[in-house]
Amino acid sequence: MRAGYATRLSRIAPYAFMAPAVMIMAGALLWPLAHSVWLSFHEWKLGTPQDAAVFTGLENYRILLADPDTLTSLRVTLVFAFTVVALEVALGVGLAILLERPIRGLNALRSIFIMPMMIAPIVVGLLWRYMYNEQFGPLAQLLFMFGVEESPPWLTSPDWALASVIIADVWQWTPFIFILALAALQSVPTSVVEAARMDGARPRQTVLYVKLPLILPVIIVAALLRLIDAFKVLEVIFIMTEGGPGLSTEILSMRIYKTAFEFQQLGRASALSNLLLLLVAAISVGLVLFNKLRERAHASG
């Protein structure tokens, strides 16, 4: 009898201990999500009470998917997110490999490299908007010193604006990949590197065939985190271009903001948020599966 009670208790205990955390998670995560799904089936205009929301079924989704601007925004988001992550991974890993070796003043250099990451996104937006100012900005002045009198229309031409905001994001977030890649590189066992060297591998070959494969899982996780962030970025673009000129930098998060606050369609904004959530989840799951398959192939191969 006593033993049975103890067994039962030990079976319940883990759930009892988890319950508060699960409740908090449900309250803080699932409830807003459920509310957002509920809202996406309603038409609710900003500035009206919630009981004025009218149930419209899938109408919000239908309007969004029939709107060519949503598709433009989706295209801009994909180009932005994949380009920034590719550039950040290439630059971050490259810098980590270069700065892994012991060089004098390395610590100071590392600290300087990670500074952009510590700046608030709003400030980064303001900083780059100033950098790109065609009349007074440092870039315009630098170009002027080299004899270029007309500054490129960094943020004012639809052809340039996306590239300009990509540069700002790469500037801010390359350090994130850099510190993770550097930490991973430093954790590569020296014995493996030395074994490769003794087998006659040149430094380039050691990096390409020994170090990079070993740090790849870390890089994939870092890239995934950056990708999720890049899909949701708002502040920098909000400050620099507000999605313009035209729709050239109107990533989905900017469009969600505009749908909620400019168009005042809270239901439609929720529907768009849910679509973005699905997109990010699909891409994340895809990448995680890809990594698992790769590891399995690697293990069996």
């Binding site: 205009k45 601007d69 004012t156 031409s157 639809p158 052809d159 999605g243 313009g244 000129p245 035209g246 729709l247 050239s248 109107e250 505009k258 749908t259 400019e262 168009f263 005042q264 369609q265």
Partner: peptide
């Protein structure tokens, strides 16, 4: 109200494409 909200938000970027772009 519809001009201030949805229409202006829809027309503005496209107009920019045609005038600035």
């Amino acid at each position: 109200p519809v001009w201030v909200g949805e229409l202006k938000g829809m027309i503005g970027p496209k107009l920019s494409d045609a005038i600035v772009g």
